[in-house]
Amino acid sequence: MSKRAPSRKTSETERGPETGPAGDRSAGDDSEDARLDPILTAAYTCFTRHGVRRTTMDDIAREAGMSRPAVYQYVRNKEDVFRRLTRRLLAQTLADARAGLESKDELADQLTSALEAKLRLTLRLWQDSPAHAAELLSVDARTSADLISEYEQAMRDLLAGAAGRVVPPRADAEEFADLLLAFTRGLEADLSDHATPVRRLRHGVQLFVAGLDHARTNPLESV
């Protein structure tokens, strides 16, 4: 009787050894260990190439040029890799958003730069993985909901902080930030033409800020 070939594992929680450095490392230690860089880079390549469900730890190890046991010295399983990668991508997006706010003088330009950083992340996934972007985004929302929530709150705080310096007395800077984020999420829903959402984002932010300027110069009309 011929032996059956081993089946390809597809579990999102494919597990490695329960002991070792990865089990003791806190969530914020990624930047302290340069060995995570090739693992996370390889994971991004594999996730965008195969999708999250079809990617195995063997795929990630092979792409990183490491043995599977070596990879498990730094991560616990595929879900751990995915969360670490998500955390890194979101942290970079927030850093880009902060840089955009600090590099511009006009409020509309500041807000546009910050929101473009958010939009670029989604565009990047669709450009790098047209076949799997929807899966990546849905898995991200399910597996890393807490990270997404923290990211959205941090982005909201950045936008509200910028808007709060110029909004009229009766305006709510946080609600204004929520409107901007909702508008951007709407643009992210249709990325079939990558240039269109960027153009609409810039135009939309200008309209939002024009509304603020009008309310500030005509306070009685906003009562």
Rank of each mutant, 00 (worst) to 15 (best):
R124W: 11
R200Q: 05
R49S: 14
P6Y: 05
A97L: 02
S144Y: 07
F176A: 06
A22F: 02
R202Q: 13
G51W: 02
G164I: 00
A160R: 01
G28T: 04
P168D: 05
G161K: 00
E102M: 02
S144N: 13
L191C: 01
T10E: 12
A145H: 08
A43T: 04
L40S: 00
S31N: 01
R4S: 15
T143Y: 08
Q92H: 12
V52S: 04
A133V: 04
V75M: 02
R49E: 08
S7Q: 08
E32Q: 09
G186K: 11
S192W: 08
F47M: 05
E116R: 04
P69Q: 00
P197Y: 03
E12G: 11
K104Y: 01
D58R: 14
V167T: 10
L191R: 09
L123E: 09
D213R: 12
R165H: 12
R165V: 09
P17F: 07
R165D: 12
V52D: 07
T45Y: 14
I60L: 11
L89M: 05
E221T: 14
L136K: 05
R202N: 03
S26M: 04
A131M: 03
D109W: 00
T56R: 02
D140V: 06
R15L: 03
T217L: 14
S26R: 07
H214K: 13
L136I: 06
K78N: 15
S144L: 06
A117P: 06
E32V: 02
P169A: 09
D80G: 10
I39N: 06
G20A: 05
K3V: 15
K3S: 14
T45I: 08
T143K: 07
R170I: 10
A141S: 10
L111D: 02
A210N: 12
T55V: 04
D178H: 04
Y151S: 10
G204Y: 00
G211K: 10
R142K: 14
L101M: 11
H50Q: 12
P130E: 11
T45K: 15
R200T: 05
L119G: 02
S149H: 14
G100S: 08
T48E: 06
D105I: 01
E106D: 15
D146F: 11
R185V: 08
E63G: 10
V75I: 13
L187E: 10
S103I: 00
S31H: 15
I39E: 04
S67R: 07
R49N: 05
G65P: 06
A117R: 02
G16T: 03
V52C: 03
S138M: 12
E79C: 06
